[in-house]
Amino acid sequence: MDNIANTIIEIKGLGKTYSGGQVALNDINLDIKEGEILALLGPNGAGKTTLISAICGLITPTSGSVMVAGFDIRKDYRRTRELIGLVPQELTLGAFELVVNTVKLSRGLFGKKPDEQYIDSILEKLTLSDKKNAMVQQLSGGMKRRVLIAKALAHQPRILFLDEPTAGVDVELRKDMWALVEELRRDGVTIILTTHYIEEAEEIADRVGVINNGQLLLLEDKHTLMQKMGNKQLLIELKDPINAIPETLAHYELELSADGTKLSYAYDIKSERTGITGLLGDLGKAGLSFKDLATSQSSLEDIFVELVGTQP
């Protein structure tokens, strides 16, 4: 990811409180960069869909602002909405319509002139060509999902929201969908997807945000997260406490606990040399003897559970 990439969506202090007093979004601040794939993780009811709905204009936020490509989503809704495509979580499709007609309708709604060729190419990419003239109600769930994606792409959006795109989707569609996402990314389309599958976020996202109880708890580059995950900690419990780490061990970048009884060493399990053998040898040479050894590793899931778990 290019760090100097432009911010395409700028969310500031976004809040949504329903008339019943239920807080769905609480002071969300988030910058989404052009061309990135951002995965929003969170349990059901965390506020992911509400956040997307607010950006797309389906609900009215109670506070804060959202700018899309420099335009306010309320004042300049025409300019912001024409850039956005939305694939909703529910399989919402009119029953008595032909596949091709419903996709054409979407293109028109977003102000684009009819373009048979483009519509055909979208249908083909989603392997819907042979269902072009089928009634929507006759399609299977997976096929309906494809139609929803085709509708969202019908007006060539620059930003695509995928709300739980793989919920109840078979392996084949999932594969097709990720291939399509990859292709869209190559074309520079910004993709925001919500999911509660952590592996999914790991697989395709550039950045990962964690939402719970309407709050954005964490937003980090996936690689930074992966590094945290790839890193293991070796915890060395010393027989006798020390005041400082000996000079000879300086290059291991050890951390000494406050009471001087524990040393921790971070290492990358993927690297060829973890340095553990050397460290243990050097500890002996420095005259330190140890009581116990332990290793630990944090996964994205741990981070996630920890974050979500600390929520009231």
Binding site: T80, R81, L109
Partner: peptide, 11 residues
């Protein structure tokens, strides 16, 4: 049917 989401999110 819920398809109104599209109308509401369109420009």
């Amino acid at each position: 049917t819920g398809t109104i989401y599209e109308i509401m999110s369109a420009p």
